[in-house]
Simulated assay, not measured.
Amino acid sequence: MAKRTVTVIGSGRAAVSPDVVRLDLRVGHDAGDVAAALSGASEGITKVGAVVRDHDVADADIRTLDAGVNQRWDNTGTAIGFTAQQRLAVTVRRLESVGEILEAAASAVGNALLVDQVRLDVSDRSEGLRRARDAAFADARDKAEQYAALSGSQLGAVLGVAEAGAVAPVAYKAMAASRDLAGGMPVEGGDLDLGATVTVTWELR
């Protein structure tokens, strides 16, 4: 006779204090040929990198995400040139400098700067995720005990545990021309929620 079991899904969250901001910065450049477009985008992203380093961001916290070039067309379908773009991921560990960095980058490259993402995060999620998993397992056990009682049983041994994946902090996304960043972008830390979901199977006795 097969074992009687109960399988439930539990979820849990843990509040953490953000200590970094993840920036996704992009520079675009239009030109009549591919080489000039790439050269212009490269020059622009180099200026942005210099600005970031001037604000005490370490080289280890600056990473090129990607680069590309596409042909441009007018509204009649005629090819009129090329647009090259390069993206830079920046981790800012001094939250109060985010606005200063964005303002300085906008001043350096003008409307060639686009801000694809400004995201509060924590540099080390391990403790927060541990607390979220604890809460998720406790939630699963609470549900399982209720189902066991409803079926006139008691929980036995845990037969299986599977994590469905951690929930990352919600990102704040922005797409803005550099002129809109002239006043900077103050960032308030507040709290973030990290989450975890777990599926647990218990034997019923």
Score class of each variant (00 low, 15 high):
112 A>D: 11
24 D>R: 12
135 A>C: 03
83 T>L: 14
49 G>D: 04
96 E>A: 15
57 V>H: 00
99 G>N: 05
54 D>F: 05
199 T>L: 10
63 R>A: 12
48 V>G: 05
3 K>D: 15
168 A>T: 12
36 A>M: 03
133 R>E: 11
180 D>V: 10
87 R>L: 11
107 S>V: 11
85 Q>N: 14
56 D>Y: 10
187 V>S: 02
152 G>M: 13
132 A>H: 01
16 V>A: 06
125 R>S: 09
165 G>C: 11
189 G>W: 03
29 H>V: 09
152 G>P: 10
199 T>Q: 14
67 A>F: 13
109 V>Q: 02
74 D>C: 13
147 Y>M: 06
10 G>C: 01
117 Q>R: 15
37 A>L: 05
91 T>P: 02
34 V>A: 13
179 R>H: 13
150 L>R: 14
199 T>A: 10
25 L>A: 01
19 D>N: 11
166 A>T: 04
89 A>G: 14
186 P>N: 04
110 G>N: 07
104 A>Q: 07
40 G>K: 01
127 E>W: 11
75 N>C: 03
140 A>L: 05
117 Q>D: 14
38 L>A: 00
4 R>C: 09
61 D>W: 07
177 A>L: 10
24 D>G: 03
82 F>L: 09
109 V>Y: 04
78 T>L: 14
121 D>F: 05
3 K>V: 12
22 R>Y: 05
